[in-house]
Each structure stands twice: as structure tokens, then as C-alpha cells.
Design a protein around this nucleic acid. Structure first.
Length: 209
DNA sequence: CTTCAGATGCTCT
DNA sequence: GAGCATCTGAAGA
């Protein structure tokens, strides 16, 4: 029973208080939630299937480790629910949401979504076919850089307050609850003991199918 | 299936 | 100048 027919106008936007918690809680609870972009003319988006928590000043892998603060990560210090978008490897954007509180800079990286709305538009932005062998192309949004490209998210979106109704980007409640698997975060091998912590969360099928 | 190199630009040392 | 919360296509097993 797929709920692919659910209408974008019926989605319940996540309120500011959803984000006023530590990154581990927010990262787990974002699984199954909807991420929608109306950057550009069409609305596109899907269901969040993978997140990572970056849990503040003690977390060596976090951009705000040891209270590091610069023009790049200023959004981590903004009110909870603020988009933090940065460029990685000179090529790809990564979309995060700030959480916890002003002086406690946590963030959740959204690593993957399951495409649901505007699949053709996302495929065009990604430069690949929307359908492969009768199924939605699985590589449209299954990575942090890929989903930003598909949703049209770049550093213009940095600093957007996602619970605000006027933005081109928002998060909305999950229609279902589901299970997840936790594992170490990706690409942070140089972060010492923090590299092994299971702060990456991947939704199981129960979330969205 | 797997590994691997190259692309590319911004931040921080 | 080094390193980076990545992605892709090509080559090998």
C-alpha cells in the first residue's frame, strides 16, 4: 500500500519545536518524513530514507566541533530548523538542518530520499532517465549530493528557515512510523573514536512501502 | 560484482 | 597547500 497519491498540499510542515532537540533524536525522527522543494517552478521531493547526526561541539566529525564557527557553518548556530547547505569536494552540495539550540550547534545531514513528487523534473536535473526497467531510477536521490542536485538545492538555500511557510524548501511529517538500522557515518575516517559511532540512520522498507 | 582516479572549489593552516 | 559529511565512469575480477 503505497501512499504515493498523498497530495503535496495536505502535508503537515514540521514545526520549529521538532528541531529543538539533539541531532540523534532529530535524525531518527526525520526518517519517513517528507522533504519538498519548490526551488524552480515545480514542486519536487520524496520520503527521507537516510540521515546522519552531527552532535555538537564534542563530536569531532561535526563542523561545529570545539565551537568552530565561520561564515560557512554559521547556519549551524542559527535557530533550530535552519537549512545548512555547504559545498563538498568542490562539486556537490550537502543539505543539513540545524537543531538543538542557538549555543548548541547540532545538525542532521539528509543523505537520501525516496523520490515521490516531480520525478521527471528530478531526473532532468540529474541528467539521467527517470525510469529504469519499469522502476523509478534508484540513483536519482540516493546520496547527499544527488538529492541536492535533484531538488535544486544549492548554497542559495543556506540559512532558510524550513518551518517557515515562505521558503522554497520544507520538511513535513511522516504518515507512518517505521524501523531503521544504525551504522557508522560515511566519510569521516579521520575523526578518531567518533568515526565508529553508529550515528547514521537508514530507514527500512517499513517506512515507505 | 569490485576498486579506483579524476573532477572541482572553498575553507582553514 | 592540504583536505574535504561525494559522484561518476572506466577498468578489473
Amino acid at each position: 500500500m503505497s501512499d504515493a497519491g498523498e497530495h503535496l498540499d495536505d502535508l503537515e510542515v514540521l514545526p520549529p519545536r521538532f528541531f529543538a532537540r539533539n541531532a540523534l533524536a532529530v535524525a531518527r525522527d526525520l526518517l519517513g518524513c517528507r522533504l519538498v522543494s519548490r526551488i524552480g517552478k515545480e514542486r519536487v521531493g520524496g520520503v527521507i530514507t537516510e540521515t546522519e547526526a552531527y552532535a555538537g561541539v564534542l563530536d569531532r566529525a561535526c563542523h561545529a566541533h570545539a565551537f568552530h564557527r565561520s561564515a560557512r557553518n554559521e547556519s549551524m548556530y542559527a535557530r533550530p530548523g535552519t537549512a545548512y547547505v555547504y559545498l563538498i569536494y568542490g562539486l556537490h552540495n550537502c543539505l543539513n538542518v540545524s537543531c538543538l539550540a542557538l549555543d548548541r550547534p547540532h545538525a542532521v545531514l539528509i543523505r537520501a530520499i525516496s523520490p515521490r513528487w516531480g520525478v521527471e523534473t528530478m531526473a532532468r536535473r540529474r541528467g539521467m532517465p527517470s525510469v529504469i526497467r519499469g522502476e523509478v531510477n534508484p540513483s536519482l536521490c540516493d546520496g547527499p549530493g544527488k538529492l541536492c542536485q535533484a531538488l535544486g538545492v544549492d548554497r542559495e538555500a543556506d540559512g532558510l528557515f524550513l518551518p517557515g511557510a515562505d521558503g522554497g524548501l520544507f520538511l513535513a511529517r511522516s504518515a507512518t512510523s517505521g524501523d531503521y538500522v544504525a551504522s557508522p557515518r560515511v566519510g569521516i575516517e579521520s575523526s578518531g573514536e567518533f568515526a565508529a559511532l553508529p550515528w547514521r540512520f537508514v530507514a527500512t522498507e517499513s517506512h515507505y512501502r
